[in-house]
C-alpha cells in the first residue's frame, strides 16, 4: 500500500497536466468507441444513434426544448425527498444508535426494509398517496431515509467513547453531549449515509416518474422518448441524468470535505 502511495505521489508531482487529464481518458475512450462503432455500422444507428447527432439534439432540447424543465422537476423532487429523509433520518439515527438496546431491537426492521427493493413498494405508495407528487417524493424519501438512518445509527453506535466520557467529566448534560459531541463524532459516517441517500433518491424519483403517472421529469421523458422512438433524445436524457447523479454525489463530497475536515486525521 505504502509503496503504491509513494509512487502515485511522485507521479502527481511529475507533469501535473498529464495527471489532471488522466480521469478524462476513460470517458474519451468510450466516446471514441461509440463513434467508431456508429460510423463502421457495427452498431445499428436506428438503435444507437451516433454521438454527434445525439449531442446536437440534447443541446437543443436543453437550451430550446423542455429537457431543462424536466431536469429541474426531477431535481426538485430529489431535493424534497432528500430533505425529508435527512431531516427525519439524522436525528432518529442518533437516538436509535445512542442506546445499544434500542438499536438491537430495530436493527432487523431497518435491515429488512433496506433489503426490500424500494421499487417493489410502488403499488403500496400509489394506494396510500395517489398518483401525484406525494407518492414519488414519499417513496424516494423512504428509500433514502432507511440508508441515512442506518448509517447514522451505526456511526453513533461505533463512536469513540472517550470523547463522550471527556465531555461528561466536564459536566456536559446529555443533551449537550448529543449536540456537541455525538453529532459531530458521527458526521463522517453521516455523510456516507447522506451521499448514498441522495443517490438512491435520484434513482427512485426517476423510476417513479416512469411508472407513477406524471407529465414531467427525466424518468417521464425517457419513457416517452422510448414510446415515440425518439432515441437521440432518450440517450441524451440518460447522459444528462447521469451527469446530474454524478454532480449531486460530487457536491456532497465537496460539502463533506469542507465540514468534516478532521476525518481520517
Amino acid at each position: 500500500m505504502k509503496a503504491i502511495t509513494a509512487t502515485s505521489v511522485k507521479r502527481a508531482r511529475r507533469g501535473s497536466l498529464a495527471n489532471r487529464l488522466q480521469p478524462a481518458v476513460g470517458p474519451l475512450l468510450l466516446l471514441a468507441l461509440w463513434y467508431v462503432a456508429a460510423i463502421t455500422g457495427l452498431l445499428n444507428t436506428r438503435l444507437v444513434p451516433a454521438p454527434g447527432p445525439t449531442f446536437v439534439t440534447t443541446w437543443a432540447a436543453l437550451v430550446h426544448g423542455t429537457m431543462a424543465h424536466d431536469l429541474t422537476r426531477t431535481l426538485v423532487r430529489v431535493l424534497y425527498a432528500f430533505a425529508i429523509a435527512a431531516g427525519v433520518g439524522v436525528p432518529l439515527g442518533i437516538l436509535i444508535g445512542a442506546k445499544d438496546r434500542v438499536y438491537r431491537s430495530v436493527e432487523f426492521l431497518i435491515d429488512f426494509f433496506r433489503s426490500t427493493p424500494s421499487t417493489a413498494l410502488f403499488p403500496l405508495f400509489m394506494l396510500m398517496f395517489g398518483l401525484g407528487e406525494e407518492s414519488k417524493v414519499g417513496l424516494a424519501a423512504f428509500a433514502a431515509f432507511l440508508i441515512i438512518v442506518f448509517n447514522v445509527a451505526y456511526g453513533v453506535l461505533n463512536a469513540r467513547k472517550t470523547r463522550i466520557l471527556a465531555a461528561r467529566s466536564m459536566g456536559a448534560s446529555t443533551l449537550r453531549i448529543f449536540g456537541d459531541v455525538i453529532f459531530l463524532e458521527t458526521l463522517p459516517q453521516t455523510f456516507v449515509g447522506l451521499r448514498a441517500g441522495v443517490s438512491i433518491a435520484l434513482v427512485v424519483v426517476v423510476v417513479a416518474e416512469m411508472f407513477i403517472g406524471g407529465v414531467d421529469g427525466m424518468g417521464h421523458r425517457i419513457i416517452e422518448d422510448q414510446y415515440s422512438y425518439n432515441l437521440k433524445d432518450m440517450y441524451g436524457s440518460l447522459l444528462v441524468s447521469g451527469v446530474a447523479g454524478y454532480g449531486l454525489n460530487y457536491l456532497f463530497l465537496l460539502i463533506e470535505r469542507h465540514f468534516v475536515h478532521w476525518a481520517g486525521r
Binding site: 469513540r160 472517550t162 470523547r163 471527556a166 465531555a167 466536564m170 459536566g171 456536559a172 459531541v181 458526521l187
Partner: peptide, 27 residues
C-alpha cells in the same frame, strides 16, 4: 478534571485548540 491517556480520542478534532480549552467554560 480528567486527563486521558489517548489525547487523540479525548480532544475534539472539530474545534481548534483554543475551542477545546474553552469548551468546559462554555458548559
Amino acid at each position: 478534571s480528567y486527563v486521558f491517556q489517548n489525547y487523540r480520542d479525548a480532544l475534539f478534532p472539530w474545534m481548534r485548540a483554543i475551542g477545546n480549552i474553552q469548551y468546559p467554560l462554555k458548559l
